[in-house]
Design a protein around this nucleic acid. Structure first.
Lengths: 240, 240
DNA sequence: CTAGGTCAAAGGTCAG
DNA sequence: CTGACCTTTGACCTA
C-alpha cells in the first residue's frame, strides 16, 4: 500500500499521453526465424538488444523485458517519460532509465498479451493498445472534496491503527480481519461506486482474477460464521 | 500471522490460456472427417468446455485437461483448493485458477487412467475423491476455523490487491478508500463482534483516541457524499 | 486413434 | 522494481 501511495505523489496528474503514443516506426519486419532454421537469427531482444531467452509475448525478448511487460500489463501500469520526449534510448544499459519509453518500445516491437506474432500496432488501431492501459475514468465533478474527505479518513485510520492495542491485533486479528473482509466484500457488490460506468468494468474485470464465485462462497461462509459467533456471544441482540 | 498463512500451500503457476483462443482456422485433423460419424455431439471438453481434440482418458477432453490429468496422475499430485470451497468454476478461462477443482472435475467427468468410458465415480465412492481432494468446509462449531477462513480471506485479499491495476489505485484510491472507510466504520458501532465482552471495552477505549464526535461527523459526511454520488450516477437504484 | 513424451512460453518467486 | 530462475501449461509429435 505504501508503495502505491508513494507512487501517487510522484505521479503527475495527467498520465494521458505517455507510454502508448505509438508513432510510426517500422519495426515489425522480418522475424527471421527463417525456414530452414537458422540458429543465429534472433538471439537478441527486439526491445533492448540484450540476449533473448526465446520468444515472449510474441517476440524475441530478454527476461528483463519479458518480466517488465508482464508486470506492466497485468497491473495496467502507465508510465510517464520524465524527459518528456518519449525518445529515451532503450538498450540493455538504459532500459531501466525510462519505463515509459521501455514499454512503448515493447509495444512497438510487437509485444502483446496474447502472444500473437503479427500484431501491427502502427496501422491497426493506434488506440487499441492505449485503451488497454488507460481507461478514461472519471466522473467529471460531483466529487470535489472526495480527496479532502478521503485524505482525512485515511489519516485518521492510520492514526487509529497505530494506536490499536497490540494485544487486540495479536489475539483477535483473525476476527478483526474477518470482520473487515465481510464489510469489505460487500461494497464490491452493492456499493454505488461500482455503478459508475467507467469504473465498473474495470472492477468487474479485476474481481474476475479472484473469481467471483469463490468470493461469494467465502462471503457466505463468513456471514454464517459471523452469525453464529454473534448468536453465541450476544444472544439477546439481533443480528445487525 | 505468518503461521496461519504458511499453512496454506502456495499456488503453482497458472498461466492464462492463450494460444488457442480463436476458433475457426483449424487446420489440423479430423473433426469432420466425414459422414458416418456424428461428431457434433462431443467436440467439447467435458471438463472445461474448450475444444476437444478427441477422447482422452475415457472422455472428450481438450489438450489442456488431458495433459493436466496426465501429469496429476503420473505424479500422484494432490492439490488443495485455496478458496476452500471446492467449488471453483472450471471453464476455459478459469481452469488454471484452481488445480484442486480442476482435477476434481476431471474425475467427476469420468476421466480415469485406464481410459474406460463408463466409470461412475459418483455412485462408486462418493467420498473417496472428495475427501481426498476437498476438505470439509463449514464450521461445525462456531469458531473452529475462524483462523482458517480468515487466513484464507487475507490470502486472497493480498493476492487480489497485488494484481490490482495501479491505475485504479492511483485514480480512484480516494473513492476506494472512502468506500472502505464507510463500510469499515459501520462495524465499530453496530457489529456484533464488538459486543463480545472481552473485546468491547478495549475497542471502546481505543476509539476514544480518535474522538468519537469527529468520527461521527466524518461518517455523516461520508454518507452524504456517498448518497450524492449514488444518486448522481445511479439515480434509478435505491441507496443501499 | 489416443497414451505419452516434448518443449516453447506463460506464470510465479524472491534475492538483490 | 528488476530479472534470473523455476514450475506448469498445452500444442504437437511419435509410437
Amino acid at each position: 500500500m505504501e508503495a502505491h501511495l508513494s507512487k501517487i505523489s510522484t505521479l503527475p496528474a495527467s498520465p494521458t499521453e505517455s507510454a502508448v503514443s505509438v508513432g510510426m516506426d517500422e519495426s515489425r519486419a522480418d522475424k527471421s526465424p527463417a525456414p530452414g532454421k537458422s540458429l543465429s537469427p534472433a538471439l537478441l531482444c527486439k526491445v533492448c538488444g540484450d540476449r533473448s531467452s526465446g520468444k515472449h509475448y510474441g517476440i524475441y525478448a530478454c527476461n528483463g523485458c519479458s518480466g517488465f511487460f508482464k508486470r506492466s500489463v497485468r497491473r495496467k501500469l502507465i508510465y510517464r517519460c520524465q524527459a518528456g520526449t518519449g525518445m529515451c534510448p532503450v538498450d540493455k544499459a538504459h532500459r531501466n532509465q525510462c519505463q515509459a519509453c521501455r514499454l512503448k518500445k515493447c509495444l512497438q516491437a510487437g509485444m502483446n498479451k496474447d502472444g500473437d506474432e503479427n500484431i501491427d500496432v502502427t496501422s491497426n488501431e493506434p488506440e487499441r493498445t492505449s485503451s488497454e492501459y488507460q481507461m478514461s475514468l472519471y466522473p467529471s465533478s460531483s466529487l470535489e472534496n472526495v480527496y479532502e474527505t478521503s485524505a482525512r479518513l485515511l489519516f485518521m485510520a492510520v492514526k487509529w491503527a497505530k494506536n490499536l492495542p497490540v494485544i487486540l491485533l495479536e489475539e483477535a486479528w483473525s476476527e478483526l480481519f474477518l470482520l473487515c473482509a465481510i464489510q469489505w466484500s460487500l461494497p464490491l457488490d452493492s456499493c454505488p461506486l461500482l455503478s459508475v460506468p467507467e469504473l465498473s468494468p474495470t472492477l468487474q474485470e479485476t474481481r474476475g482474477l479472484k473469481d467471483p464465485e469463490q468470493v461469494e462462497n467465502l462471503q457466505d461462509q463468513s456471514q454464517v460464521m459471523l452469525g453464529q459467533h454473534s448468536r453465541t456471544h450476544y444472544p439477546s441482540q439481533p443480528v445487525r
